[in-house]
């Protein structure tokens, strides 16, 4: 069933957006019991006036502080048009990733003793609630490209493929918070599908704090209201390979927030590993 609401009713506006969303869930497909955390389906609607974190411990979409949104991923989604591909749906954020390579570099001057990774994130105009035409020189996207690339460069064994390039293309078709972590997770899966050698899984997760409560995996509403950071990890270690913080976070909250997002990232790795294994078994059975 669908519900939508008027998002802005200021008298002066000469145009405003209509938003649609999904209320309720077709159960069965959405509950995945998981070792560390309980991902639950997020229904982010009509509750924009509700509290970020109610006294009963419920967030705007009914989750608890330590529940990540439903993370669904598929690998090898584009078998004929890319060397590696994946699709990630994290809550309402939907991301398609394709990897082209390792292959001969386009620019001969760029050849080095290792593989050169390039990342390009493409955000569709219809991906957000309000249609935003993508700017060509979007600094935020450029920065995201750099962050993802640097994280992948740490995990990929680039020296095993010298004088090649690996191009990662991420297309965002729907956004509801957690864009950077969703892109990183999708990129990791697509790299694995392409057969690019990695030391381990790469995953990312965001978490923030609201009146001394750490909240894991924020959706758009929460990201707008609450200070948060995003971390990227390689493998199940506690070493943080990427961290971005663009809001002001109280020092006392830093440790719990880091710990929360670390456990979220580890949980995501398990889900991704399960998806890779499922795909692998399927392929091996067919041979």
């Amino acid at each position: 069933m669908f519900v939508w609401e008027l998002s802005d009713t200021s008298a002066n506006c000469d145009s405003f957006w209509i938003r649609r969303g999904r209320l309720g869930s077709d159960t069965g497909t959405l509950d995945q019991t998981h070792r560390a955390l309980l991902p639950s389906y997020s229904s982010p609607l009509t509750q924009s006036r509700h509290e970020i974190y109610s006294p009963e411990g419920l967030r705007t979409d009914g989750r608890r502080w330590n529940e990540i949104r439903n993370f669904d991923c598929k690998i090898n989604t584009h078998p004929t048009s890319a060397d590696g591909s994946s699709y990630v749906e994290w809550g309402h954020t939907k991301v398609v990733c394709t990897v082209d390579g390792p292959r001969e570099p386009d620019n001969r001057q760029n050849t080095t003793d290792r593989a050169v990774i390039s990342v390009n994130v493409n955000v569709a105009s219809f991906s957000t609630e309000t249609r935003i035409k993508r700017q060509r020189n979007d600094k935020r996207l450029a920065e995201m490209n750099i962050l993802i690339r640097q994280l992948l460069e740490e995990a990929v064994l680039t020296k095993l493929n010298p004088r090649t390039q690996i191009a990662v293309n991420i297309t965002v078709i729907a956004q509801d918070g957690g864009l950077l972590p969703a892109c990183i997770n999708a990129a990791c899966l697509a790299m694995i599908d392409a057969g690019v050698p990695l030391t381990d899984y790469v995953s990312a997760c965001s978490s923030g704090v609201y009146s001394n409560n750490a909240l894991i995996d924020l959706n758009t509403l929460e990201e707008q209201d609450v200070p948060f950071l995003t971390i990227g990890v390689i493998g199940k270690s506690d070493k943080i390979s990427m961290l971005t913080l663009e809001t002001q976070l109280p020092m006392a909250s830093l440790e719990p927030v880091l710990a929360t997002s670390l456990s979220g990232a580890h949980a995501i790795q398990d889900i991704m590993d399960a998806a890779v294994r499922k795909h692998g078994k399927h392929r091996l059975e067919r041979k």
Binding site: L157, L160, I192, D193, G195, P197, L198, T199, D200, G280
Partner: peptide, 13 residues
């Protein structure tokens, strides 16, 4: 790939 005596897999296979 190896770290010390341990051998790890670097791909899905």
């Amino acid at each position: 790939y190896s770290v010390g005596n341990k051998t790890f897999s670097s791909t899905a296979g």
